[in-house]
């Protein structure tokens, strides 16, 4: 829902900040995230783990929205691509003793190649068909990770070295927050450039885009490559944070988790999913821990929330924010959201 984010209106509040997609409210959110590990009750280790997981899903949802919200192709294999990057990095660390800090970028590059391939193969397909193709890719990858036991140890899980040799979760938390911000800034800068216009044009009307001179091949493949590269790096983080990688991480339900967050956050906003992920994941974790005798209930709630949002508020949280907060009559709210 890019109702207010038109290309021609240069951001009034701080050109530089505007360029990387931040307004004062966004900056406040970043500060809040930075301070959160010191604010009770979030300073407890188990809540910190939730926070890290939420930030992980938030970051994935930014990369996911970069594809689904712009070129309008739902990459159902997104979690599998992340897992693919994670396994790359983990295997490098286990077998060749390569530092996770280098490994996650090799994982990202490897995932980018995969994204390039998926992008190329799905070129002739539109909408749901391209989504299915990416899904099959994801299923195949997960199948490989499960069956290639000699390589990945299959469902037993691959033990990976952690990125920080400490019991504390705090360094991991700050690392994922940095990754979240970087991912958001990279995606935002790309969509704020001419490329963003091409992405949207291709996603919204392929024929009109082509007759307007846009070459869909380049932009679609580029989009897939970048979003998969980001997923690959995040997968690496995941593996080196939990210290164990199982094929479970590549499961479609993981993608659906990301998808739900991205859609509830607002398609095409990039930031919506990142913001919504935190309360959403906390809610899910609370449900999971308090209603542990009803396994799977959280998935039912995902589905319900997603359906409700899709039917009654397809614009998601970012649309709500644009209409009711960004353009509110309250002056303070408008200054905070960079719309003064």
């Amino acid at each position: 829902m890019e109702t207010t984010n038109t290309v021609q209106s240069s951001p009034a509040w701080g050109t530089l900040l505007g360029k990387i997609g931040f307004n004062p409210a966004g900056i406040l959110c970043v500060f809040l995230l930075m301070a959160l590990p010191f604010i009770p009750p979030f300073n407890q280790e188990y809540l910190l783990r939730w926070l890290i997981y939420a930030a992980f899903i938030a970051t994935l949802s930014v990369g996911f929205d970069f594809t689904s919200g712009y070129i309008n192709i739902v990459n159902f294999g997104y979690a599998a691509v992340a897992g693919y990057g994670g396994y790359t990095s983990a295997l490098l660390a286990v077998n060749l003793n390569i530092s996770p800090w280098i490994g996650i970028f090799i994982g990202g590059a490897n995932a980018a190649v995969l994204g390039l391939i998926i992008g190329m193969i799905s070129l002739r397909l539109r909408g749901i068909f391209a989504a299915c193709l990416s899904w099959f890719f994801g299923l195949a990858l997960m199948g490989l990770a499960t069956k290639l036991v000699w390589l990945t140890r299959g469902p037993l899980g691959l033990r990976t070295p952690r990125m920080f040799e400490t019991e504390s979760n705090i360094p991991f938390y700050y690392l994922i927050i940095v990754l979240l911000i970087l991912t958001y800034v990279i995606c935002k800068m790309v969509v704020n450039s001419k490329m963003g216009l091409a992405f949207k044009a291709i996603g919204q009307n392929m024929d009109a885009a082509r007759t307007s001179g846009i070459n869909p091949v380049f932009y679609r493949v580029f989009n897939f490559t970048l979003s998969c590269a980001l997923a690959g790096i995040l997968g690496g983080f995941y593996g080196h944070y939990y210290g164990i990688l199982t094929p479970e991480v590549m499961h479609t339900t993981k993608t659906v988790e990301v998808l739900a967050v991205a859609y509830i956050g607002g398609r095409g906003s990039l930031w919506g999913g990142a913001v919504v992920a935190f309360p959403f994941i906390f809610l899910m974790e609370i449900i999971r821990s308090t209603l542990s005798h009803l396994p799977g209930l959280n998935l039912v709630i995902y589905a319900l929330m997603l359906i409700l949002v899709m039917i009654y508020y397809p614009g998601g949280f970012s649309h709500f924010f644009d209409v009711h907060i960004r353009q509110s009559k309250n002056k303070i709210l408008r200054i905070l959201t960079g719309n003064a």
């Binding site: 829902m1 890019e2 038109t6 290309v7 021609q8 001419k194 216009l197 091409a198 949207k200 044009a201 919204q204 009307n205 024929d207 009109a208 885009a209 307007s212 001179g213 846009i214 095409g268």
Partner: peptide, 18 residues
């Protein structure tokens, strides 16, 4: 054949840029 979620000027800009 419009781009439904784009503003009028953005729609024209696609052709003007690309």
């Amino acid at each position: 054949s419009p781009f439904p979620k784009m503003t009028a000027i953005e729609s024209v800009m696609t052709a003007s840029i690309f």
